[in-house]
Simulated scan of single mutants.
Amino acid sequence: MRIRATVAAVSGALALSAFAVPAAHADGSASYRTHAATIREAAIAGSGTGSAKTAFTAATETTGQPYALDVTFSNLKIGKAYKVGTTSHVAFSVSYTLTHGSDVDITSSDFQTGPYIYKGSYDNPSNMLFGDKPATCTATSSTTATCKGNIDIYPADGDLMNADAGSWSAGALAIDWNGQQNSTNPDLSKVGVADQGGLGTTLVQRNSTLTADAGPEPVYKGRTLTVTGKLSRANWEDNHYHGYANQPVKLQFRKAGTSTYTTVKTVYTNSYGNLKTTTTANYDGYWRFSFAGTSTTPAVSATGDYVDVK
Rank of each mutant, 00 (worst) to 15 (best):
H25M: 08
L14N: 14
K148H: 00
L16D: 06
V193Q: 12
L129Y: 04
S167C: 00
G158N: 06
Y272T: 03
F92K: 08
S74T: 15
A165G: 08
A24T: 15
N124R: 02
I153C: 12
I39G: 04
G215V: 00
K221D: 04
A281Y: 12
A292C: 01
I151H: 13
A37K: 05
G48N: 05
T138V: 15
N127V: 04
T209W: 00
T269W: 00
N235T: 02
L69V: 03
T86I: 14
A13H: 01
D187R: 05
T107Y: 04
Y67D: 14
G149V: 14
P155N: 03
G179D: 01
P216M: 05
P125V: 03
P66T: 07
H89W: 11
S169E: 07
T226C: 03
A174K: 13
V104E: 11
T6C: 02
D159M: 11
T34Y: 08
T280H: 07
G192K: 07
T140L: 04
Y306T: 01
T184F: 09
Q205W: 03
D123W: 06
G149P: 13
G166W: 02
A145H: 02
G101K: 07
V10P: 00
G243W: 08
L210Y: 11
S208P: 13
A8Q: 14
T224K: 15
Y261V: 09
G149Q: 12
G12T: 11
A292K: 06
K230F: 01
T86F: 09
L98D: 00
G179W: 04
K276D: 01
A172T: 08
T63N: 00
K250E: 13
Y122M: 02
S301N: 13
G85S: 09
G85W: 01
K83N: 15
P218S: 12
T34W: 09
A58D: 13
K83F: 01
T38V: 07
T228S: 12
T260G: 03
T136K: 14
W287D: 10
S109C: 00
T258I: 10
G46E: 10
N246I: 11
S95Q: 11
S141W: 09
R206M: 05
T297Y: 03
V90P: 00
H100W: 05
N270L: 06
A37F: 02
D176T: 06
T294Q: 03
N124E: 07
D305F: 09
A81C: 05
M128Q: 14
K80G: 04
D195Y: 12
H100S: 09
D123E: 11
A37T: 02
R33D: 15
Y82H: 10
A81T: 04
A18V: 03
S271E: 06
N150W: 01
G158T: 05
T38R: 06
S167H: 00
V249N: 02
G114W: 11
K255Y: 04
V267W: 10
A299H: 11
G158Q: 06
V104R: 06
I117W: 02
I151E: 07
S17R: 11
P22S: 12
T97I: 00
Y118T: 10
D132L: 13
K148I: 08
S109Q: 08
T184N: 09
A145D: 03
T277I: 12
G64D: 12
H100T: 10
A165R: 02
N270V: 07
A292T: 15
L231H: 05
V267C: 13
K83E: 13
S141Q: 08
G293N: 06
G293V: 00
T296D: 06
Y116H: 13
T143P: 07
T279C: 08
